[in-house]
Structure formats: structure tokens, C-alpha cells
């Protein structure tokens, strides 16, 4: 058990908590936050497994992947928040699923 393994374990825990919250929450801001936590867990795992040989320089390919992933995740966060503001302005709701009524009789 060395330092990158420790951080990889943290990434796995963060991913599990994020996907749990992503499934059970319906508020869209909470879903976006949970999605960001999930992404952070995956990035942490990727950078931690880039240290393959202890003491040597880390593998640069996962670093490039993670850099791209951070930029993509922040652009998707911005896009999701703009969609959320549009949904709120049109319907006054902050969730796509209304938990008080059943969804079986809806067509779309």
C-alpha cells in the first residue's frame, strides 16, 4: 500500500458516493453536483494508476486524458445548468421526475 494506491481508493469511494446520490436524488442541481463528484473520483483513479513504476516518472497519457476530462466536465456542467434555468423558467420545477405522481401514463 503506497501513496497512489491510497488516492485510488479515495477515488473509488468518491465514485460510489457520487453514483449513489446521482440515482436517489431528483433535484437537478444535486444531480449535477453528484455527477461532478463521480467525475472527480474517476480522475483521481486515473492519475493514481498513472504511477505504474514506483519512483519513476508517471505515464503522461492518463494525465492528458484527465486534463481533457476536466474541461469536458466543466462544459457539461455549464450546459446542464443553462438547461436547468430554462426548465425552471418554463415550468417552475427543478426536477424532471415528479415523485408525487406516477410516470406510467405519460407518453413522453
Amino acid at each position: 500500500m503506497n501513496q497512489p494506491t491510497w488516492y485510488a481508493l479515495t477515488g473509488v469511494i468518491l465514485f460510489s458516493m457520487g453514483i449513489h446520490a446521482f440515482v436517489i436524488r431528483t433535484h437537478l442541481v444535486r444531480r449535477i453536483l453528484a455527477f461532478n463528484i463521480m467525475g472527480s473520483g474517476v480522475f483521481l483513479l486515473l492519475v493514481a494508476i498513472a504511477h505504474r513504476i514506483p519512483g519513476a516518472a508517471p505515464d503522461p497519457v492518463p494525465h492528458a486524458l484527465v486534463l481533457t476530462g476536466i474541461v469536458v466536465s466543466v462544459s457539461f456542467t455549464a450546459f446542464g445548468l443553462v438547461l436547468l434555468k430554462k426548465i425552471y423558467a418554463k415550468t417552475g420545477k427543478t426536477a424532471l421526475i415528479d415523485p408525487t405522481e406516477s410516470t406510467s401514463d405519460q407518453t413522453n
Binding site: V47, V71, A78
Partner: peptide, 30 residues
């Protein structure tokens, strides 16, 4: 701590700068 200062730069710019601004704006609008 994972010796990836380039990713630390991107994370500092994006999470401290961009994400917080966007989320606060959206929560204020809601």
C-alpha cells in the same frame, strides 16, 4: 500530492473560478 501540477492548474482555474461562479448563478436564479 500526486505530482500532477498541470492538472492542479486546470483544477484550480476551473473549480475555484468557473464551477463555483456557474453554480452560484444557477442557484441564485432558482
Amino acid at each position: 500530492r500526486l505530482r500532477a501540477p498541470d492538472i492542479a492548474l486546470a483544477e484550480a482555474a476551473i473549480s475555484a473560478g468557473l464551477s463555483g461562479v456557474l453554480l452560484l448563478d444557477a442557484v441564485g436564479a432558482i
